[in-house]
Each structure stands twice: as C-alpha cells, then as structure tokens.
C-alpha cells in the first residue's frame, strides 16, 4: 500500500515534470512543425518543377505545344509552378502557421 503510493507519487511527479517541459517547449513544437511544412513544400515544389520541365520538355522541339506563346513545359513548370507556389504559401501562412511570442519574459520563465 505504502509502497504503491510511493510509486504513484513518483510517477505523478515525473508526469508533471514532463508536462512542465512540454509547456515550455510548446513554441518549439510549433516551430518544428512549421519547419517540416517547409520541407514538405520544397519537395512538392521540386517534383512539380522537375516533372513538368523534363516530362514535357524532353520531346523533340517540333512536337512542343505552346501556352500563351511559351513552350508548355516551361509554362507549367516555371510560370504555373510559381503561381501555385505563391498560392500554397499564402494558404499555409493563413491556416497552418501559429503566432507565438519570441520573448522569454512574456512567459516569465528562464531557460
């Protein structure tokens, strides 16, 4: 009984410590998530860019089709790709990024 109580206490203490640290690291959890979003975005960006450029651009020039006067590989890869990039960045900023405070003093804690 006493023994079990002791263990329980220890576990609780450990849990609250863990909790403390997580609270402190809350901003870092957000930051880590946003860094991963950045990596995801750049990978998507690269695949789009590479896929259209070399997928459509490897044909002989005589078989090229044109969009707005530009070869289609170039239009989809560079022009449309850029527009989609901007749209994605705006979307991510509006819906996924979280505003956090950078100042230590706001939280009243010292690292």
């Amino acid at each position: 009984m006493v023994f079990g109580d002791l263990i329980l206490k220890k576990v609780l203490k450990k849990m609250s410590k863990e909790n403390d640290r997580n609270n402190k690291d809350d901003r870092f959890r957000i930051a880590n998530r946003e860094a991963l979003i950045g990596v995801g975005l750049v990978i998507f960006n690269f695949i789009w860019w590479y896929g259209f450029a070399y997928g459509l651009g490897s044909k002989p020039v005589e078989e090229y089709s044109y969009v707005l006067g530009l070869p289609s590989w170039f239009f989809y890869s560079c022009v449309l790709g850029f527009i989609i990039d901007v749209a994605l960045v705006i979307f991510i900023v509006k819906f996924f990024l979280v505003e956090v405070s950078f100042e230590e003093t706001d939280r009243g804690e010292d690292e």
């Binding site: 870092f28 957000i30 930051a31 880590n32 946003e34 860094a35 979003i37 950045g38 950078f102």
Partner: peptide, 8 residues
C-alpha cells in the same frame, strides 16, 4: 520556414 520561429 526552416530557421523560422525556433531560430528567432
């Protein structure tokens, strides 16, 4: 995004 908030 990579350096982002953590660096700040």
């Amino acid at each position: 995004l990579i350096l982002g908030k953590k660096f700040a």
